[in-house]
Design a binder for these strands. Structure first.
Lengths: 141, 141
DNA sequence: AGCCTTAATGAAAATGGTTCTCATGTCGGT
DNA sequence: ACCGACATGAGAACCATTTTCATTAAGGCT
């Protein structure tokens, strides 16, 4: 690879930059359309493998990061230091998580949203967003 | 150590469980009293070393975790996947964080607490706790 | 003061999620 | 079909944190 035999023909540089449509990328996007909950890169990787998809873990990480950067995904960090992604849904909601069995319930409440916005504005903050996770022990645990 | 020559005198079992007061633990507590901003375990370790303290990184991690479990410290996770700690002011509260400069304001509101508890109970959850972080761009950014 | 039990310490190794490397595969325009 | 550039993926590298385990020292007891 050390030999660089001159760029003969086209000196035309193509910046392109366009993203290519690949099987793997489509698979990741599809899974995220099906499931509406937060999932880590590794969970998504497992899901895809179970669906019979051949895809590398690295590619999953890369794709999720690309999508997140592009604003197509929401990302949160779990208490374990993992990053979980979710399709950026129009509706905003929070999670009620059982700290024993991990069961998750989606909840939402305008009260919290309003409160968060009001408080933030009082302090002169703009472009407000927030993360809220509720933990507890569920019925069956 | 295999020989167990009988517990002659006191058969009294001492569960003790009391925490011992050590130089290292005191040093960590002192640093956290001085600085009111969020700092990672490694930053605190560096701080202590610069102060001339001899302390291992492991001990810093352990001590911070103990204090956090005891409710003496607030812990948040940075975007880099690091955990940052700060001395906890008395009451329960949340954080309003500027996503540009990192400035942090403590906020609290009974409304959220009540809402979180109510929602969780509706779903049959017990021993409820929650994390709430509000993000925004502050005045000066 | 000396003993003794046990928590605490810390250096090094292990862990585990995420990122980097680089050889190979494949998309898409010509 | 050709070709250059982007995409893929297996494995290595990274890095914060945790675990291991031999050693140190706190603090109650006599």
């Amino acid at each position: 690879m050390t030999t660089k035999p001159a760029t003969t023909t086209g000196t035309t540089i193509k910046p392109s930059g366009a993203q290519r449509k690949t099987r793997q990328r489509a698979a990741v996007e599809e899974i995220l359309s099906d499931r509406h909950d937060f999932r880590t890169a590794q969970q998504i990787h497992d899901d895809l493998r179970h669906h019979g998809e051949r895809i590398g873990l690295t590619t999953v990480y890369r794709t999720l990061q690309l999508m997140s950067d592009a604003g197509d995904l929401d990302a949160i960090r779990t208490g374990d230091g993992e990053t979980a992604y979710r399709r950026c849904s129009t509706g905003h909601h929070h999670h009620l998580v059982c700290r024993t069995c991990g069961r998750t319930v989606e909840v939402s409440g305008p009260a919290v949203e309003q409160w968060a916005n009001a408080v933030a504005e009082q302090h002169g903050f703009r472009e407000i967003s927030h993360d809220l996770e509720i933990f507890g022990t569920c019925n069956t645990c």
